[in-house]
Nucleic acid binder design. Structure first.
Lengths: 357, 357
DNA sequence: CGGAAATGGTGAAACGATTAACTTATGGTG
DNA sequence: CACCATAAGTTAATCGTTTCACCATTTCCG
C-alpha cells in the first residue's frame, strides 16, 4: 500500500480510504488510485494487516460436529453450507469450515482457529449442548448463530420444530396401520456407538435433536394408543451410510418391524439398501420413512419429512451478518411438512415378515 | 499475549516461543505458560497478528467455478472438499471456500480475498483455462494445486485420464450395440447456455475436461466405426439437476437415441428422472451412463465411470501442504474404471423409442 | 464580505505477534 | 581452571492497515 501511495503521489491513508470506499477521497482520485494499484499488481489491502487493525477479517465459519470429513458426506450439512454461502457470497464474505472436536491434545485448546480469530463469526451446526468449543465461543462473545442445537445457550438460532416434524412422521406410519415399528435415531450423545436402546435410555440424551424427535415419536405413539415400550429403537451413532447399515442390521436382528422410521434420510436410505440385500421389498414388506428431504429422497421415492435446509442456511447467515453489523436479530423458525412418496404403505395382511434371503 | 507474559512473569517473546513449541523454552515453562493462558482465557496467538508477522495464516482455500452456491450441490465438489479436509484437519489447517467468478464489479478485483491473503494456498477445482483469478494466482506465486483443469498452467495438479475414462464409458455403450447415442456434456466454456452442439463446435471448448472427454467419446466412436457426426451432443451449461433436466429435454426433442452418455452423474440422474416422467424405462427403453460414481449412482444403480474423488482431494491437499512447507511435489494421476450397474443394457430389438407419455 | 460548514487530504499511533541478534547461566572438557 | 558450547530467555524491529485528530481549501449563506 505504501508503494501504491508513493506511485499515486498520495499518503497511505488516502489509499486506505480509497479502498474502503470512504467519502474522504474523491471519486476521480479513487479511480486513479485503483488504476495505479492494478498496474503495480496490488490486489487490495492485505487481510492480515487490515484485520489486525480493524478487527474484521471477512470470513465466517461453520462448525460441524466431529470432523468436516464426515460432515461433508451429509447432504443436510452441504445444503446448509450452500445457504450460508449464498448470503456470504453476496456480502463478499468467505466461508470456512471447522471441526467441532479436536479436543484431543491438551496442548492446543480445542479448535483454536475459531477462537484465535480466523473468522468474524460462526454458524454452529448440530453441536451437542455444553460442547467446550461452544462454551468458549459464548464466553468470548464471538458472534454466533446456532442451527438445530443447542438452543439453550442464549445464542440466536434457527431451527425447525423437531418434535412436530417427528410427530408428523410417526403419525403417518401409525395412520397407515403399522404397530410394529423400528426407529433409527442418529445419535443420543457424544459417543458414536451403534446399539439398541430403550425408551428409558432416551431421557438421558444430550443431543437436543434426538430428544425432541423421540418425544415427537412417543407423543404420536400415545395418541395412537401404542405403548412406547413396543417401539424398537436403535441408535446409529454417526450420520453416514455405514452407521445406517449397521443400525438397520442390529434392528432387524432384534425385532421384526413392519415399518422403519429414521431421523435422517441418510439412515433411511441405508436401511432401504439393507432391506433390498435381505430380499425385502419397500414398501410391500416394510415401509421406510426418513427425515430431511435430502435430494436423494426425491430420486429414490423415499417418504420423508421436508425441512428447508438451504433456507436454514440463508437464515443463519442473515442473522449472523446482521449481528456482525451490530444488529440484534435473534431467531428464525422454519416449518416442516410430510412428503409422502413410494416408500410407505399399509402393512401387509400377513404381518409376519417373510423369511430372510 | 502481553497479559499472559506479564501474568507468567516472562517476556512476550517467551510466550510466543512457548506457543510455537520452540525448543527455546523449557517444557516446564511451557506448561506453566499454557496454564496461565488457560486461566486468562487466552486461546492462542491471534491469527491476524501472527499472520501479519509470519506470513502464514493457517488456512487453505478451494476455488470452485462460479459460486459455492452451485458447487455445493455437486457431490464431486463436496467429496473433493472432504478429501482436502481430511488432510487439512490433521494438519490443523482450516478449509475456506471461494467462488472463482465475482468478475463483476471493476472496483473490486476478482476474488480479492484469495489474493489478499485470506489463505496460504489454494486448490483450484475445475476452473477454465486462462481464468483471470488463476492468472493472478500464478503471477503472485500463491501456492496452488489444480484439480482437473487447467493442466496447462505450470501448476502442480492432480487429475484423472479424462479421455480414457470417457473412452471406457462410450466403449461400454457401443459394445452393447447402441448406435444412436446422445451425449450430455457439462460445459464447454464460460457461458452456461443449454443447447445442442455439433462435433465441430466442440473443438473450441475452453474447458479442458470437456475437450478431453469428448475426444475420448470420439475415439471410441471411431474405433466402433460410428461416424462422430451421428452423435447427438447437448451441452448443459451448469452442473446441477435443473441444467440436466433441460439438456435432456432438448436432446430428446431433437433426437431419438437409445443410449444417453453424460459427463456427470448429476446429469445422468437428471436424465433418468426426465425419462421416467416421459414414461420411458431405463435400461429397457434407453440406457443411461454417468461419470464420477457419486454416492447416488450406487443407490440408483446407475452405470458410471468411477473416479476416486475423495482421494483426489487428499492428493491435492498433500501436494499443497508439501508446497507450503517448501516441497516440490508436482502431480498425481488417478485411475478411472467402468462400473456397470442396472442402467445400461443392449438396445431393444424395435429400436424405435415408444411414443411419449 | 466574514465566518461556518463541507470537502479532500495528511501524520502517526496503534493492532498482536514473530524472530534475528544478543545476553546470561550452566555444565562439560582438555 | 579457563574456555566454550548449550540452554533458556530477553530486546526491539517489523509486518500492513486503519482511523482519530488535524489541517488546508473551497463553497455557501445571510
Amino acid at each position: 500500500m505504501k508503494d501504491v501511495a508513493r506511485a499515486a503521489g498520495v499518503s497511505v491513508a488516502t489509499v486506505s480510504y480509497a479502498f474502503s470506499k470512504s467519502s474522504k477521497v474523491s471519486a476521480t482520485q479513487r479511480e486513479r488510485i485503483y488504476s495505479v494499484a492494478a498496474e503495480l499488481g496490488y490486489a487490495g489491502p492485505n487481510i492480515a494487516g487490515s484485520s489486525l487493525r480493524s478487527g474484521r477479517i471477512g470470513a465466517v465459519g461453520v462448525i460441524v460436529p466431529d470432523s468436516p470429513v464426515q460432515a461433508l458426506e451429509d447432504p443436510s450439512v452441504t445444503l446448509l453450507m450452500k445457504g450460508i454461502a449464498e448470503i456470504g457470497n453476496s456480502a463478499d464474505i468467505a466461508l470456512t469450515l471447522f471441526p467441532a472436536s479436536r479436543g484431543g491434545s491438551p496442548d492446543s485448546p480445542p479448535n483454536s482457529l475459531v477462537l484465535r480469530g480466523l473468522v468474524d463469526g460462526v454458524v454452529i451446526h448440530n453441536v451437542p449442548d455444553g460442547h467446550p468449543l461452544v462454551e468458549a465461543i459464548i464466553a468470548r462473545g464471538i458472534p454466533a448463530v446456532v442451527v438445530d442445537s443447542p438452543r439453550s445457550a442464549g445464542l440466536p438460532f434457527v431451527a425447525i420444530d423437531d418434535r412436530h416434524g417427528a410427530y408428523l412422521q410417526m403419525d403417518h406410519i401409525l395412520s397407515l396401520g403399522h404397530r410394529r415399528i423400528g426407529i433409527i435415531v442418529d445419535k443420543l450423545g457424544q459417543d458414536s456407538d451403534c446399539r439398541m436402546v430403550t425408551a428409558d435410555d432416551v431421557g438421558a440424551a444430550t443431543e437436543r435433536n434426538a430428544r425432541e424427535r423421540l418425544a415427537g415419536y412417543f407423543a404420536a405413539a400415545r395418541d395412537h394408543h401404542l405403548p412406547v415400550e413396543e417401539l424398537s429403537i436403535v441408535v446409529a451413532g454417526n450420520i453416514d451410510r455405514a452407521a445406517g447399515d449397521e443400525a438397520t442390521r442390529i434392528l432387524l436382528d432384534a425385532a421384526r418391524p413392519t415399518a422403519l422410521v429414521a431421523t435422517s434420510d441418510v439412515h433411511a436410505v441405508a436401511a432401504w439398501q439393507v432391506l433390498r440385500e435381505r430380499g425385502l421389498t419397500v414398501p410391500d414388506d416394510m415401509s421406510v420413512i426418513g427425515f430431511d428431504d435430502a435430494p436423494v429422497a426425491e430420486l429414490l421415492g423415499l417418504s420423508t419429512i421436508h425441512q428447508p435446509i438451504v433456507e436454514k442456511g440463508r437464515a443463519a447467515a442473515t442473522i449472523l451478518l446482521d449481528r456482525l453489523g451490530g444488529g440484534t436479530r435473534t431467531r428464525s423458525l422454519m416449518k416442516t411438512s410430510l412428503v409422502v412418496r413410494a416408500s410407505t404403505a399399509p402393512p401387509r395382511e400377513s404381518s409376519t415378515a417373510p423369511p430372510r434371503e
